[in-house]
Every structure is written in C-alpha cells, then in structure tokens.
C-alpha cells in the first residue's frame, strides 16, 4: 500500500503490530539479552560477570578449529553454489525448460528437510554398502570413505549442501536473468560481443545485485550449518566437521557448559552479522 503523499493517516492500525512486538520481545530480544548475559558469566556460570568465557575461547584450540571448519565450509560451498547455480541458470534460461520434471527437480531438494538429506547421505555414502562406492567401483575407481574420511568429510558435507541448494541459487539467478533489459543485449550484439565475452562483460556485471542477494541468503545458512552434520557425522571424524554451531550445541546441551556455549554462539552471531554487513557494503559497488 505504500504510495500516496507522505501524509499522516487519520486511521491508525499501529495497535495491530502489538502481538508481533510482544512475540519478538519475549522470544527474540529477551533471549538475545539473556544469551549475552550468560556469555558474560551470568546465571552463575562465572564467579563474577566479565569476559572470562571469551578469554577462555581465545585460548581454546577447539574453538579455533571450529572457526576454521565453519569458514572453510562457508567459502567452499558458497563458491560452488554460486558458480554452479549461475551456470545452471544460464542453461535453464537458454533452453527454457523450467517445467514438468525439470521444475520438480529444481524445487525438490531445497524443500526437503535437511535431516532427510542427511539420512539419505548416510545410506548412499556408506563406505561399505552404499550406492556411491558401488558406482565408483562400476567405473573402475577405488572406494572412498566419504563422510568417514577425516581429511575429506568436510568437503563431502559441502557437496551435499551444494546438491541441496544449487537449484535455489539457480532459481534466483534465473529470475535476475529474466529481468535483464533485452535492449542491452541487442546493443551488445551490435557492438559485436557474443558468447563468453558477452557473458563476462555484459551478463555477469548486470547480475551483480542478484548474485549478491543469493550470496547473502546462502551465507547466513552456511555460517549456521548444523542439521546435516549433526545427523551424519556429529562433527566427526575427530572434529573434522565440528562447526561453531555444532560446537556450541554440544557445549550447551551435552556438556551443560551454558555460559561458555553462549559465548561461542555470540561470536557466531557476530560473524553472521559481519558477513551480512560486508555483503551490504558491496551492494553499492555492484548495483547499476
């Protein structure tokens, strides 16, 4: 309903937002404050309020490992999903096949509960009896440990998430592609651009804002990565897939170290906030 002169409406509907405000205060703002309080040693988790949990954090190798795992997963999966999603979107746009079975295939993965995706991964990627190794074997390749590999499990998790979310990125990019002004393409064609150079010099820069939107949406989810890891590896082998979110959950609910867990969560929340602010600051640069 927005347009109309910037007037003061005689009819006030402001009271209608009240339930939402109460809900937000009770379920978001208050818990947020409480979490900060806990992280500072409130509720008896430290003898006195202070930064004790945070200094412990700085000296904890497990925290640094979890931070590294979180950032690696974030970077690898984000790049994979943006590149593959853009490529898929270009193909879908070119051949105009988003209907029937193709549309189903695009929408299904990200509508599935991540837990179900994790359960499928357990069965398909089982090192002994899984279908994935059987396929490798049929192709004459050696078996692979998949999620049980201390070295590669994190990459496998990133690939699973990429399977689930690349179509979503593709859909967003497809929307951006279809909103691009056709005139620009005609002009570029007249200027002699085609194929790769057309993509590199015209399409990609114009897609900037759309890619940024996709990046923000995926970053927020990737930095908070939890479900699939908790279902499949529980953070293992060792702590090869222990992200900050997994670590915080375990600290809080398995070890009941409530104050310390809260400090990990606050750090994670700041990282998420930082990434959003970072992408928001890029918005000006990429918009046209």
């Amino acid at each position: 309903m927005p347009p109309r002169s910037p007037g003061q409406q005689a009819m006030s509907a402001r009271w209608m937002i009240l339930p939402a405000v109460v809900m937000t205060l009770a379920m978001v703002i208050f818990p947020l404050g409480f979490a900060i309080y806990l992280s500072l040693g409130g509720n008896g988790t430290l003898p006195a309020l202070g930064l004790g949990h945070y200094s412990r954090l700085m000296a904890d190798p497990a925290f640094w490992s979890a931070l590294r795992v979180t950032l690696v997963l974030f970077a690898v999966a984000l790049v994979l999903q943006l590149v593959l999603g853009t490529a898929l979107a270009l193909a879908l746009n070119r051949y105009n096949v988003v209907r029937g079975l193709v549309r189903t295939a695009i929408l299904s993965p990200f509508m599935l509960p991540p837990v179900v995706v994790g359960m499928i991964a357990i069965v398909v990627l089982d090192p002994g009896l899984g279908a994935a190794n059987w396929i490798l074997e049929s192709l004459g390749l050696p078996h692979f440990l998949w999620l049980a590999s201390p070295r590669w499990s994190l990459l496998v998790v990133a690939l699973i998430d990429t399977w689930q979310w690349t179509p979503f990125v593709a859909l967003i990019v497809l929307g951006g592609l279809q909103a691009l002004p056709a005139r620009v393409y005609e002009a570029a064609e007249i200027d002699g651009a085609k194929g790769w150079s057309l993509f590199w010099h015209v399409t990609l820069p114009l897609l900037g804002p759309t890619l940024l939107t996709a990046a923000v949406l995926r970053s927020v989810d990737l930095l908070r990565f939890f479900d699939i890891i908790y279902i499949t590896t529980q953070g293992g082998p060792g702590n090869a897939t222990t992200t900050l979110n997994i670590q915080a959950y375990k600290l809080g609910f398995d070890f009941m170290d409530v104050g310390y867990a809260s400090s990990v969560m606050i750090v994670l929340a700041l990282i998420v906030l930082g990434s959003v602010v970072f992408f928001a600051s890029l918005r000006k640069k990429v918009s046209w």
């Binding site: 937000t24 379920m27 978001v28 208050f30 818990p31 947020l32 409480f34 979490a35 806990l38 509720n43 927020v220 930095l223 908070r224 939890f226 979110n245 915080a248 959950y249 809080g252 609910f253 409530v258 867990a261 809260s262 969560m265 606050i266 994670l268 929340a269 998420v272 906030l273 959003v276």
Partner: peptide
Amino acid sequence: SLFARMAPGTLFLLPWFIM
C-alpha cells in the same frame, strides 16, 4: 525480523531452555 531470521537458532536455544 531480518535479524531474527539471520541469528543462529542455537543463540536462542539455551535461553529458551532455561526460560
């Protein structure tokens, strides 16, 4: 509401549990 969407769920979980 954007903030509520972005914040890690675990952040609210311990306070809720105690609440």
